[in-house]
């Protein structure tokens, strides 16, 4: 059974079809890329997969379960985690707290347990802290455990955001332009981080990226969309030489 199956995905905002007839399939374990010019609808696809937008038509089946009608937090609980184009950490909460809150879906206790500090609460809370610290250590963020994200440089904030997404123990990780705003040294670090995450956690990664260096060195399979439609797909080598893709990025000479 496929991990993620997207069929005929279409969304219209008013008269504009932002994404039309998008298709995609993850067997599990791939590292796939989604590229396209600005405004092509890449983030819109991610927003539909994570349940934030309701598609006009088409279906998204994750792990054998249709995600139509699910709230974003329910989709996430199924095993889809994501990061954002512009980092969306909770800026006034420590790195540890950021990661603790992200484990909400397996809190395992209720409000009353909070008040009375029941045994269940103590057990769950220490388990949550333990797994949070594990993720922090694994991503080499131990030094920054109690820092506020605002005080961290941009590259580290990215890393914290990836850590937060990983703490959800996803089966599919969506990375929305992970290299945006990073300098070239940070980009090198990010490439090896993503490669390591992919091997270590054995999950599927789907990323949107503009920096060709990142996409070409990481992705096994790339889909290119323009004006909401898939215009090409293939291995990095095939995409690089595809005339349709070059036209979408560089424009048509004849115009």
């Amino acid at each position: 059974m496929a991990l993620l199956e997207i069929k005929d995905l279409t969304i219209r905002f008013g008269g504009l079809a932002a994404v039309s007839d998008f298709e995609c399939e993850f067997a599990g374990g791939e590292l796939m890329g989604l590229i396209g010019p600005n405004g092509a609808g890449k983030t819109t696809v991610f927003n539909m997969v994570s349940g934030f937008y309701k598609p006009t038509s088409g279906s998204i089946v994750f792990d054998g379960r249709g995600t139509a009608g699910l709230k974003p937090h329910q989709v996430t609980a199924l095993g889809v985690a994501r990061t954002f184009q512009n980092i969306r950490l909770w800026k006034e909460m420590s790195v540890l707290d950021n990661i603790r809150v992200a484990q909400y879906y397996r809190l395992g206790y209720g409000v009353a347990d909070c008040f009375f500090r029941s045994r269940r609460y103590m057990e769950r809370e220490s388990a949550i802290e333990r797994t949070s610290r594990e993720v922090i250590d694994a991503l080499e963020l131990t030094r920054y455990t109690d820092e506020m994200p605002t005080n961290l440089p941009y590259g580290l904030q990215r890393r914290v955001e990836i850590a937060r997404a990983l703490s959800l123990r996803p089966k599919l990780l969506l990375l929305d332009e992970p290299a945006a705003g990073l300098n070239s040294a940070d980009v090198e670090g990010l490439i090896s981080l993503i490669r390591w995450v992919h091997e270590e956690y054995k999950l599927s990664i789907w990323m949107i990226e503009h920096q060709m260096k990142v996409v070409m060195s990481l992705c096994q399979w790339i889909k290119v969309i323009d004006f909401g439609r898939i215009i090409a797909e293939g291995t990095p080598e095939q995409i690089q030489s595809n005339p349709e893709v070059i036209k979408a990025y560089l424009g048509d000479e004849n115009i």
Binding site: S50, F52, K71, P72, H73, T76, A77, A81, R82, F84, R88, L89, W90, K91, E92, M93, V101, A102, Q103, Y104, Y105, R164, A165, L168
Partner: peptide
């Protein structure tokens, strides 16, 4: 601090 991020990070807002 960020309601959208909270919802996406599995918090039942």
């Amino acid at each position: 601090q960020d309601e959208i991020a909270a919802e996406i990070m599995s918090v039942n807002t």
